[in-house]
């Protein structure tokens, strides 16, 4: 168990960060290079002001018409993404790890808030799962990989919650928590989780086309 712990909390952390950061840089630069070669229009029409205008409308809850049409989905999506990004950065146990390893620290969440946020992520994943299984237009688009990705995202939160509350086999869960977090991080650049990387570009481009060329809103 100790060897395993040392592996996941040592070399694999480095590896996952390396894959995440290196992979993200690789994916983005490859796509920019390809776009320069094949999609010159993207650079011609990309416009900082209109790209930002569109992005802002889409990262503000209920900033677009479609979000108003799906209020439950909107609330869940925003809560999910906010918790998903903030928790790993500000949960006390993680901040302590940064402090111990690098002697740097920052503001952290209280345990009860962190707990609530973890449950929000887990609950959101269940919502997404139910949606995938029951809403016909989502079900139609769903493939096995969608369930794998959902499981990949839910795993670190389920295991983290388990380990923190010291439920049965929590030591193993702790290891699985670290491992699943690492897998998720490494998967971002190479799966549909890459929407995190490309959101700014796709939305920004559409915002530019609509705003600068077509003189219209796109939200």
């Amino acid at each position: 168990m100790h060897t395993l712990y040392n592996l996941v909390s040592g070399p694999l952390v480095w590896l996952s960060f390396l894959i995440f950061i290196g992979g993200s840089v690789f994916r983005i630069t490859t796509m920019i290079r390809l776009a320069k070669e094949k999609d010159t229009a993207v650079f011609e029409y990309m416009n900082f002001y209109y790209a930002s205008r569109s992005i802002v409308h889409w990262i503000v809850p209920f900033g677009s018409e479609n979000m108003k049409k799906h209020p439950a989905m909107t609330v869940v999506t925003f809560a999910f993404h906010i918790c998903l990004i903030c928790l790993p950065l500000f949960v006390f146990a993680h901040v302590i790890l940064w402090k111990e390893s690098w002697n740097i620290s920052w503001w952290y969440l209280s345990d009860s808030v962190a707990d609530l946020m973890t449950l929000t992520v887990i609950g959101s994943c269940i919502f997404f799962l139910v949606r995938r299984l029951t809403v016909p237009e989502v079900k139609y688009l769903t493939s096995n990989s969608d369930f794998v990705i959902l499981a990949l995202v839910a795993a670190p939160f389920v295991t983290g919650f388990w380990a923190y509350h010291q439920l049965p086999a929590y030591r193993l869960m702790g290891i699985l928590h670290i491992l699943s977090g690492e897998i998720m991080l490494a998967a971002i650049p190479f799966t549909r989780l890459s929407h995190a990387l490309f959101f700014l570009f796709t939305r920004g481009y559409m915002g530019s086309e609509f705003g600068a060329v077509k003189n219209a809103k796109d939200w």
């Binding site: 889409w58 959101f199 796709t202 939200w219």
Partner: peptide, 9 residues
């Protein structure tokens, strides 16, 4: 394109 959160065309 106005309903896709990513603006996929």
């Amino acid at each position: 394109a106005m309903y896709c959160p990513f603006g996929i065309d």
